[in-house]
Amino acid sequence: MLQTAKATFHRNMISMIRAYPWSFFLSHILSGIYTVLFAYFTYTYVFEGVLDSRFSNYAGTNDYLSYVFLGGALFSFAVSTLMNVSRSLITEQREGTLEALLLTPSSRKGYFLGNVTQQITRTLLEFLIILIFAFLLGLQFKHIHFLSAIFIWFCAVIGFFSQALLLGSVMLYFRDTYITQNTLFVTMAFVSGVTFPIGYLPEWVAPLSWMMPLTPALEAFRHSVLEGQGLAASGSQLLHLSFLSFLYLIVGSLGIKKTEKIVVEKIFS
């Protein structure tokens, strides 16, 4: 598995250096920045800095801008991870290399692991640029619990990776990238607490929130960055995130295995 992961990491790194996907890189940064700017202007000029009394109850903080800035940055990171990992197999199919890949006895987990570790080198940069931009607009880091934030970020990566496996199998099955992933991303932005706490949402939307690894990841990340709390304070969120990661990893792995066969059959039938 590790040999496949290492080789795939190396292959993607070479491809990235030879033809850097500037448009993806910029669009991910810009969408994060737009989220931050939208929240800033809305808060400053529409609501004139006045918050609903329920906000601090739901969010655990009165600092709305920092709340949204972190939401925008982690959402952008989640989108990049989901997009890059889930598109990998369908890209192989479009570029005519899927058959050559499926001919080998390589581990599919190793293949995806190589993909996710390589793409982190790019998406982490995007994430940091958005955080720097948010810092200039007022994001506060004075209470940050570094170790806890890094650990939660790492757990979030596993969660997004597992979700990407399931998304990838759905995309490969329908041989579609645009509709499937954009529907998911819009839903995630709405139900995961990116720009407002999920407490504002109607009850019937709650199951959708719980299904997104971004929801517990964001809650835990805000605890450690904005409130400076350790891991113990985010125990329930980490448990929730671990459960979703495990579930999506199993369903996604099985889904990818089954979809590969269906796709090859579809191509030849």
Partner: peptide, 18 residues
């Protein structure tokens, strides 16, 4: 893989075969 060289292609596939 068109962006890789001939040697890099063979190296990648060789690794996939362990």
């Amino acid at each position: 893989y068109w962006r890789l060289t001939g040697r890099e292609n063979l190296n990648y596939f060789g690794n996939l075969y362990g």
